[in-house]
């Protein structure tokens, strides 16, 4: 069995990054609401390197101190969208946040807000996924590019640029966690879903614009966005959901055709 060694502070990194402490305190929020367990914090002293990510620090705890910490992760490279959590008060991907960039000896990790807690850092994505599905996240049109007599639908690089960045969404939920409307409105579609509605509307292969506009034109839909921009502040993939939402609303307000 492979033994995974936790990163140990080396002499070299000590001299090179003298301002960087090599032991930090990691505070992990613990709770298990379904068992009625009250929220509390567990604290651990963790050795870190310049490149240690918050996720690696949490996994160090699991390997060395307490295996029961619940955390969801998979790719460890900002691609799967599993490891969103609140890190020192702001939603971020744990695998994409280096301890050193937080400029603090104390790192507090908590479950993302606006998602029900399953246990510790793991939250429930049911609402995000169901709202995402409501946006019809697929190309809608009568014909197909896979039947024998058809050809692929041609797009120019310019056509692609109109939706490409929105298609980079990894459904990590950070945007929904930062959104001020999401904080109080339990039925809001949320920036993730609204941005995905625009991703397909902006795709010139798609003919489902009217369908989607009808879905987002709802009292808990696009009108609840106040363009506070917090979603775009925290999005780790450059999706810029705030831009997508305003461009989508442009259709409903008659600014765009």
């Amino acid at each position: 069995m492979a033994v995974v060694e936790a990163p140990k502070p080396s002499e070299e990194s000590n001299t090179k990054t003298s301002s960087q402490p090599n032991t930090i305190t990691l505070r992990i929020a613990r709770s298990n609401p379904s068992e009625g367990q009250e929220p509390s914090f567990s604290e651990f002293q963790i050795p870190v390197q310049k490149w240690t990510t918050v996720l690696e620090a949490i996994l160090y705890v699991k390997q060395n101190f307490d295996h029961s910490v619940a955390v969801r992760y998979s790719c460890r490279q900002a691609s799967c969208g599993s490891c969103g959590m609140k890190i020192n008060g702001r939603p971020a991907l744990a695998c994409y946040t280096k301890v050193s960039e937080l400029n603090s000896n104390v790192i507090t990790v908590e479950p993302m807000n606006n998602f029900p807690i399953i246990r510790d850092l793991a939250v429930d994505f049911k609402q995000l996924i169901s709202n995402h599905k409501k946006m019809k996240p697929f190309i809608i049109r009568e014909d197909s590019e896979v039947t024998p007599e058809s050809k692929e639908f041609i797009q120019t690089p310019q056509d692609l640029e109109k939706f490409l960045q929105f298609s980079y969404c990894i459904k990590c939920g950070l945007c929904n966690s930062a959104c001020p409307t999401m904080a109080t409105d339990t039925s809001f579609i949320g920036p993730q879903g609204l941005a995905q509605a625009y991703r397909y509307v902006a795709d010139n292969r798609d003919k489902g614009k009217d369908d989607r506009l009808k879905i987002v034109d709802d009292s808990h839909g696009i009108w609840r966005c106040h363009f506070a921009g917090s979603c775009s502040q925290v999005c780790p993939k450059g999706v810029d959901p705030a831009m997508a939402i305003q461009l989508l609303r442009g259709y409903l307000l008659g600014f765009r055709k």
Binding site: E161, Q165, F227, D240, A242, M243
Partner: peptide, 12 residues
């Protein structure tokens, strides 16, 4: 809200 001044989509 009308999509004016919110930037242009592009390659992130």
């Amino acid at each position: 809200h009308g999509g004016i001044g919110v930037g242009k989509p592009g390659q992130p």
